[in-house]
Simulated scan of single mutants.
Amino acid sequence: MCNSISEELKKKDFLTLFDYSTDQITYLLQLAKDLKSKQKAGQFYHPLKGKVLGLIFEKSSTRTRVSFETGIYQLGGTGLFLSTNDLQLGRGEPISDTAKVLSGYLDGLMIRTFHQSDVEALAENASIPVINGLTDDFHPCQVLADLQTIEEVKGQLSGLKLAFIGDGNNMANSLMIGAAKMGLDFSLASPQDYLPSAKIIKKTKNIATETGSVIEITTDPLEAVKGADVVYTDVWASMGQEDEQKKRLKEFSAYQVNQELLQHAKPDYTFMHCLPAHRGEEVTAEIIDGNHSVVFQEAENRLHAQKALMVALMSD
């Protein structure tokens, strides 16, 4: 079965977790675990020797850029940083032309940008695998690392409850999909005007009926966190929303993850955050820096999960 999944993933795009089966995600998580073990043991493993990954950034980044550049290097390949300020793409060249040109030079493309439609257009016109490093709608690479981290800490995925408190943003969307695919119950609490789109919720609930997970959407953070094994939050104003900062601080004030709220989670809850974090806003310092927090283990796993993704999509 692993061999058949390995063949399925060769040159496959990674745009959202909607496009990946439970078996394919399970394969990637096991591969990430194996690659992490190799790296920790100091073993050299170069399945991507001679391969080049292009890294297109329209949004700034710490974890995505460093983990992809480090990962492709550790796998024997080369990462090529491509700022949209330096590409003709930033001067109006069509995405379709850029995709076709870069396909002649590279073995894979990662893009971190604003519009999901741009990632889809790039993938449609490229003959090499395209990886979504983040858009305003989805952040699937982060969720691979999150699932890896939850499994490391809890020893399982299926049957757990994952609660997300805050903005129904790209992280909320991708976590909801990942949870449904892997059999976790998922509860989300956001202010009414910031809930995920009805279309994404409906599509995810359809997946959940097949895997046995339960998806709950509410405006009550206490209800969402009740009995949760894992509690997750993100910044209230993401990149590109800085002008909404003051408004969002007011509207999300009741959605802070703090000790009072977490009294309603399971006693052995795990706290997660994709980072960067604003201590004192979406989460208190005592929680993110406390014993239940695994945010830096989670951040490190970006390296291992993305290495698995690159091996699966780009190796011969």
Rank of each mutant, 00 (worst) to 15 (best):
S127T: 14
A121P: 00
D97W: 02
H139M: 04
I72H: 08
L147M: 11
S61P: 14
G76R: 02
Q156K: 15
D137G: 03
L82R: 02
L48K: 07
Q116P: 00
T149G: 08
P140M: 10
H139G: 04
N132S: 06
S117G: 02
Y73I: 10
V143K: 01
G76D: 04
E58Y: 07
G79F: 09
L80C: 15
R91Y: 10
P129L: 10
T78P: 03
T98E: 03
V101D: 13
A123C: 12
T149R: 06
V52L: 08
D86P: 04
K49L: 11
T135I: 11
R65P: 12
G92L: 12
L147V: 01
T98V: 07
T64E: 02
I56Y: 03
D97C: 04
Y45W: 07
Q116F: 10
L87M: 12
V101Y: 11
S61Y: 11
R112T: 04
G90E: 01
E151K: 14
D137R: 06
G79N: 13
T135V: 05
E124T: 12
I72L: 03
S117D: 15
L109H: 03
V52Q: 09
E151M: 06
P94H: 06
F81H: 08
L87V: 01
H139K: 01
L160T: 01
F138A: 11
I128Q: 02
G77T: 14
A145S: 13
V153E: 14
N85V: 02
K49C: 00
I131D: 04
T113P: 01
G155P: 10
T84H: 06
L144A: 01
L89C: 08
D137S: 15
F57A: 08
S117A: 13
I72V: 11
T64V: 12
S67A: 14
A126P: 10
K154Q: 09
C141H: 11
T135P: 14
G159K: 00
G76S: 02
T70V: 10
S67M: 12
G71N: 07
L82A: 13
C141M: 03
Q142I: 07
Q116N: 06
S67D: 05
I95M: 15
G76W: 05
H46C: 05
F138L: 09
D97G: 07
T78E: 12
L122S: 08
A126K: 09
G77M: 02
Q148C: 07
S61N: 14
Q156L: 03
S67Q: 05
R91P: 11
T62P: 08
T84L: 03
T98C: 00
K100E: 15
V119M: 10
S60L: 15
C141K: 08
G159E: 09
G71E: 05
G54A: 15
S83L: 01
H115Q: 14
E152Q: 14
L55E: 13
G76T: 00
G92T: 09
L102I: 15
T98W: 01
R65T: 15
S61L: 07
G54W: 06
A126R: 05
A123V: 09
N125F: 08
T78M: 06
L80G: 03
G76I: 05
F81R: 11
S96E: 09
T64G: 15
L157F: 07
A99L: 05
L109G: 01
I56H: 02
L53A: 01
Y105G: 12
D86C: 04
V119G: 09
V119Y: 06
V119N: 03
